[in-house]
Simulated scan of single mutants.
Amino acid sequence: MFFPGRYGYRGTNFEQIYRCYPASSFNKPHLEAGDKVIMPQSALERLSSLHIQYPMLFELHNGAAQRISHCGVLEFVAEEGTIIMPCWMMQNMLLQEGDIVRVKSATLPKGTFVKLQPHTTDFLDISNPKAILEKTLRNFSCLTAGGTIMVAYNNKQYYIDIVEAKPASAVCIIETDCEVDFAPPLDYKEPEKPQRPVVPARKAISEDQDANVEDEPKFKPFTGSAKRLDGRSSEQAPEVASATVPARSAPTDSDKRENKRAAAPSGAAAPSGASHQELLHHQELA
């Protein structure tokens, strides 16, 4: 398919319009592992005459959806007027089989930094995702910020967005040391913090009352200063009450007689035949 004028082979740059078809329609599944397309033989002839430098890089533009991406070229064996593209690339550009895509030669700077964001967290569950990604990117020629690439591993397809690229929005990654950073996957969720259990209002009031009770000073027996019943301080030494004992005088004769009488047995009888006077005299002598 030849389009003269703006989209033809005139000028110093290669620019052409093709109808795109997926690689699966031409039994070329190996295209799915990278970002390279298959173009017709006429494109190679035109590129050779323009002395386009290797690696050959192209800008793909879907005017209907305003989608732009970049790619390399693998072969020039497609039918005239057609271009064969990876299925994931057509999906990324919102292209259907037989849609028209504009292809233009491009010169891109060497990439120094790209930031990638997997669509799902299961990509991080791969035993060594970094090694798988490095191996996959060897089949890529360039990366475009805002686009999406596909990484195939273990019969599964993982889609990864190109969040950022430096030093330009589109960079070449052939034979260059490019730093790679990862953003959290699109479906990643922050782990929820453990929530504080909700305490019923009655229980909360009861707990507050218990706390207040615990804060109140408790009664402790036998504390404080002692008090005497007489009103004096317990720290004052008690005075010993002294009793005045009257001095005892020498016993008189009458005292002696009274003591003798008290000491005598009540049942003792006076000696027989003694007179009353003798008895008194006897007592006085005693």
Rank of each mutant, 00 (worst) to 15 (best):
H70T: 12
M90N: 01
L74D: 12
I126F: 12
G98T: 05
Q117D: 02
F123I: 02
I84R: 00
A64R: 13
I126W: 10
V103K: 04
L95R: 01
V77T: 14
G111Q: 05
K104V: 04
V73H: 03
V114K: 10
L124C: 14
L133F: 05
V103P: 00
P109D: 02
F123H: 04
L94R: 13
G111Y: 01
W88Q: 00
H119D: 15
E75I: 09
S105L: 03
K115G: 09
K110F: 02
G72F: 09
A131W: 09
E59S: 10
V103C: 07
L108M: 01
P129S: 08
A106Y: 00
T121E: 13
I84C: 03
T82G: 05
S105R: 07
A64I: 12
I100P: 01
E134Y: 11
D99C: 07
L133W: 07
L60W: 02
L116E: 08
V114H: 06
K104E: 01
N128I: 07
R67M: 13
I100Y: 08
L116P: 06
Q117G: 02
L116T: 07
E134D: 11
S69W: 11
P86V: 03
A64Q: 13
P129Y: 13
C87H: 12
P118M: 06
H119Y: 13
Q66G: 12
K130G: 14
Q91H: 11
Q91M: 08
F76W: 05
F123G: 05
K110N: 06
H61M: 14
Q96W: 03
E134P: 03
F123C: 05
V101E: 00
H119T: 13
T120P: 07
D99N: 07
C87Q: 13
I132R: 14
C71A: 11
V77K: 13
S69F: 05
I83T: 07
L94M: 11
V77N: 12
F113Q: 15
V101M: 05
M89W: 00
N128C: 09
P129T: 08
G111I: 00
A78Q: 04
P118S: 04
Q96N: 12
P129E: 03
C87S: 15
K104Y: 02
P109M: 00
A78D: 07
